[in-house]
């Protein structure tokens, strides 16, 4: 029933321009700073969940009493990210997060918003807590931004594809038909695109 994570991952990587996605050079640079970045774990985890539990919409998703479990999930991600490798398993795991988000009710705005917070927190911590030279901190932030773009793309696309897969499975309406319904509906809004989006039928 679920969208194939390998297919989603491959599709996302084919759509992301190489210059904006996380690269092997990024991986090497991140690995070189892993020991010092590991010191930020508690700071990031606490700030992350303080925000989520302080907001009604996100707190509802995180049912009470499981903060330690949630924190552990983020700790595992942070440690694995610093440790590497950034292989197929890692990227498919990020795509799997999209499916998990559908199940537990984490929306894409919540996910993207917290990525924004994480990047800001990292930027602040690199200069503050870690006292990295500005050039070094700047390069690391570029790496984190490419990581964020890649992971967000995987998670959001997986969310959509899994949502559609569940809808297709429950209603019997294939993904191709869903795409056609979308095309027909959009063509109605933009008559000039009608012929392209929904091919003209042959009439009697």
């Amino acid at each position: 029933m679920a969208a194939h994570l390998a297919a989603v991952t491959e599709a996302v990587f084919s759509q992301l321009p190489p210059s904006v996605r996380f690269s092997s050079e990024d991986e090497a640079f991140l690995a070189g700073h892993a020991p010092e970045l590991a010191r930020l774990e508690d700071h990031l985890v606490q700030g992350f969940y303080d925000i989520l539990f302080a907001h009604a919409a996100t707190a509802r998703v995180l049912s009470s009493g499981e903060r330690a479990e949630r924190e552990m999930a983020l700790r595992r991600w942070w440690r694995r990210t610093l440790q590497g490798p950034f292989d197929t398993h890692y990227w498919e795991w990020q795509a799997a997060v999209g499916l998990i988000h559908v199940r537990v009710g984490v929306s894409n705005p919540m996910m993207i918003g917290m990525w924004g917070w994480t990047l800001n927190a990292l930027q602040e911590a690199l200069a503050g807590k870690l006292s990295l030279p500005p050039q070094e901190a700047g390069r690391l932030m570029e790496v984190f931004h490419r990581l964020a773009a890649t992971v967000q793309a995987l998670t959001a696309e997986s969310y959509l594809q899994n949502y559609l897969a569940v809808l297709a499975n429950s209603t019997g309406i294939t993904a191709e038909l869903i795409h056609r319904l979308v095309a027909v509906e959009l063509a109605a809004l933009d008559p000039s695109a009608h012929g392209q989006k929904a091919p003209t039928a042959s009439g009697v």
Partner: peptide, 27 residues
């Protein structure tokens, strides 16, 4: 998957009707 391949309509949108018919079929 909703592509109209033949139609005879007095009025209306064949693309939309075809997509709706295919949707009803799937459901």
């Amino acid at each position: 998957d909703g592509l109209p391949i033949a139609h005879s309509l007095n009025a209306g949108d064949a693309n939309r009707l075809a997509a709706m018919a295919a949707t009803a079929l799937g459901l």
